[in-house]
Amino acid sequence: MLPPDEPLAEIACRVNGRAVRGRAALRQTLVEWLRADLGLTGSHVGCAHGVCGACHVRLDGAVVRGCLVLAAQADGATVETIEAAGGPEEAALRDAFVAHAGLQCGFCTPGMILQAAELLQRNPAPSREAIRDALSGNYCRCTGYHAIVDAVEAAARALRGPAATA
């Protein structure tokens, strides 16, 4: 229970397709609010200072650092997290990350998948270099990235259809 003097914000927004009303401490970041109040723990807090990318969420359609947006700023916005992100890109990426072992501990993975999905929406056939570039703001401490790049490449191929795999 927060003490009565803690400043709060009223938030009404859409989260993962549903209308949500709630309150957050003003100084709570979006990712903290999603995790603690809405139980959406798929986005992770790895650094809380905007470097690691584990907290990525989609805010009004664009992937952002969830630790660098205040929960109060989500009032009126549309938020999407890894729990619901279900476009064709995310589906293909999920399959490919699993098949290619593009994750180990999995802490960075939700942020990786959201960022990679945004890449594939813009560039359906990225080079390995372009994949590395797009994911440069998402740290992985486990895989050495190679398998992640493999997975994104494979997802891109799968999305382009059978002709692309030849």
Partner: peptide, 9 residues
Amino acid sequence: VAHPAIRNR
């Protein structure tokens, strides 16, 4: 400048 998610915001 930075990385895609930073540039988005």
